[in-house]
Simulated scan of single mutants.
Amino acid sequence: MRYSQLRAFHHVALLGGFSRAAEALRISQPAISEQVRKLEQDHDVLLFYRDRRNVRLTTAGEELLRLTRGFFETERQIEDYLSESRAALEGELRIIADAAHHITDILTRFRRRHPGITVTLSAGNTEEILDALRSYKAEIGVVGSPPPGGDMETLELSTTEIVAFAAHDLVPPSRQSFRFRELADWPLIWREEGSKTRQKLADEAARQKIKLRPAISAEGRETVREVVASGAGIGFVSRAEYRHDDRMRLLPLTDADLSMTEVMAHLTQRRDVRVIRAFMDIARDSRPAA
């Protein structure tokens, strides 16, 4: 196995094709194809399904890509270490968050200090965020509650209660809150599978031996918001993430210990990636004094 073979495979897998990899590496497409073919032949493994239009990773190829992501990132870390004296930090920082408002202030400070970094911010639920971090598709994640497993370093941002919210014409004005058991009598709007809010509601229902099920499962917080605003049912969100809307009102849950702790996380093995280290330093400095 040669470095050039791994590099060829890595770029084909990342870019989705031999011609794009050849262009990125500035070598011919036949040379790229030969490097990958030799890697497969030497190790008796099929890494790509090939057809006329594109290539797709096999299961073995997906696992090798996970490893090469780490391999080439280590190479970048070595380069960064050897050139640590450079004043300006450059590159890309990919962040995936369940709610962006938890880190907007941190992002502003980070951009002021490191204008050479391009930041990409995307949304996802807890399951999607952890998958993106573990597959090297993002550097920083913001999730509800600490992630399971010991492979993540975390920084707690805030903790707030989970509340219900509903359209004005669904719940009578006389009602100002809900007991958790009462929710079984109402249509409920839940987030998709993989959402930490949904999981916490399900866990509390099991604890109180109540049968709760969603009338509607909606993908994403904004979709839930619009469905609830239409009067279709009762939704749930952490109080910190609720934005005032004249169409709806908040309804606290009086007998359920439900809260959401927002946590910033990154893979422990990536702690020395300069851009991750720089962002986490600013995040720690931005936290209010205890």
Rank of each mutant, 00 (worst) to 15 (best):
Y3C: 05
R7H: 06
A8S: 04
H10G: 10
A13V: 09
L14D: 05
L15K: 02
F18A: 06
A22Q: 04
A24L: 13
A24R: 15
L25Q: 00
L25R: 03
R26H: 02
I27D: 05
I32P: 01
E34A: 11
Q35G: 06
V36T: 03
R37K: 13
D42T: 08
L47G: 03
L47W: 01
L47C: 07
D51G: 14
R53H: 07
V55G: 02
V55N: 02
L57T: 05
T58D: 02
T58N: 03
L64P: 03
L67P: 04
F71T: 08
F72M: 05
E73G: 05
E73C: 03
E75Y: 01
I78E: 13
Y81A: 15
L82A: 13
L82N: 00
S83M: 03
S83H: 04
E84A: 14
R86M: 15
G91F: 04
G91T: 02
R94I: 12
I96Q: 01
D98R: 14
D98S: 14
A99T: 12
A100H: 10
H101K: 11
D105Y: 14
D105V: 15
P115E: 00
P115D: 07
G116R: 01
T118R: 15
T120A: 11
A123V: 15
A123G: 13
G124V: 00
T126H: 12
E127H: 14
I129H: 00
L133D: 06
R134S: 09
A138E: 08
V142C: 11
P146F: 11
G149S: 01
M152N: 14
E153T: 15
T159E: 12
I162Q: 00
V163L: 06
A166E: 06
A167E: 04
H168N: 11
L170A: 01
P172Y: 02
R175S: 08
S177H: 14
F178H: 08
E182G: 14
L183C: 08
A184N: 11
W186A: 13
W186G: 12
L188E: 02
W190R: 10
G194F: 06
G194L: 05
S195D: 00
T197C: 03
E204C: 12
E204A: 04
A205T: 07
A206H: 09
K209V: 13
I210Y: 07
K211D: 11
L212H: 08
P214R: 12
P214L: 12
P214F: 05
I216C: 13
E219Y: 12
E219D: 08
E222S: 11
G233L: 11
I234L: 05
F236A: 07
F236E: 03
V237P: 06
S238W: 01
A240H: 06
A240R: 12
E241H: 06
R243P: 08
M248N: 05
P252M: 02
L253G: 02
L253F: 01
L253V: 04
D255E: 13
A256K: 00
L258D: 02
M260E: 04
T261C: 04
V263T: 09
M264V: 12
M264A: 09
A265F: 07
L267S: 08
T268S: 05
R271T: 06
D272H: 08
V273A: 03
M280H: 10
I282H: 06
A283T: 05
D285E: 10
S286F: 02
R287S: 07
P288K: 01
A289I: 15
